[in-house]
Computed example of a mutant assay.
Amino acid sequence: MTTTELRTLARGLTVNPVGVGCWAIGGPDTNLGLPMGWSTADDSESLRGLERALALGATLFDTADVYGHGRSERLIGRAIRAVPRDQVVLSSKVGYLTEGAEHPYEPAHMRRRLESTLANLGVDHVDIYFFHNNSFGDDDRWLDGAIEQMRAFQREGLVRAVGMRGPHRFVLDRLTVPKEQREDKQARFLDLFQRIRPDYIATRYNALTPTPPAGTESVFDFAERHGASVLINKPLAQGLLVGKYTPSAPPSFGSGDHRLRKAWFASAAIRVIDEGLRPLRERFGASTGDLARVALRFCLQRASNAAVLVGFTTEAQAEQNYQSLGEPLSDDDITFVRQVTGGVQKQLDSLGEVFLDELEAPR
Rank of each mutant, 00 (worst) to 15 (best):
N133K: 03
A108W: 09
R174I: 08
V171G: 00
G77C: 13
S116D: 11
P178L: 02
G100Y: 09
V159F: 09
R155E: 12
R182Q: 15
F131Y: 09
N134G: 15
D127T: 01
M164G: 07
R155Y: 00
D127M: 00
V171T: 15
G95E: 11
W142M: 01
R111S: 11
I128C: 03
E180A: 13
L175M: 10
M150R: 08
Y200R: 04
V126S: 07
Q186W: 14
R112C: 00
R81Y: 03
A82C: 04
S135N: 14
R195Y: 05
T176H: 14
R169Q: 13
A119K: 14
G95Q: 13
G100S: 06
R78K: 15
T98E: 09
R151C: 01
R160W: 04
S135M: 06
F153H: 06
R195V: 04
P104F: 06
D144N: 08
L114N: 09
S91E: 14
L114F: 12
P167M: 09
M164R: 04
Q186C: 00
M110Y: 08
K185D: 14
E102I: 10
Q149Y: 00
T203V: 15
I147M: 11
V83T: 15
A152F: 00
R85Y: 09
A79R: 12
S135Y: 11
L121T: 05
R160C: 03
E106V: 05
D199W: 08
F170Q: 05
Q194P: 00
F136S: 01
P198M: 13
P198N: 12
F170C: 01
D144Y: 00
L190F: 02
P84S: 10
F131S: 05
H109M: 11
L190N: 08
R151L: 02
R169P: 01
V159H: 11
T176M: 13
L75D: 08
Q181F: 05
A79V: 03
D191K: 14
L158H: 10
L190D: 13
L143Q: 05
D86F: 13
R182L: 08
M110H: 09
G163E: 06
V159C: 14
I80V: 13
A119M: 07
R165A: 14
I76P: 11
F136I: 01
D139F: 09
D173K: 10
I201C: 06
T176Q: 13
L97I: 14
V94P: 02
H103Y: 10
G137W: 05
D139Y: 08
F130I: 03
N133P: 04
K185H: 14
Y200V: 07
E180L: 04
G157T: 01
R112I: 00
H168D: 15
I196W: 04
D199K: 10
A161D: 03
I147H: 12
L75W: 08
V123Q: 13
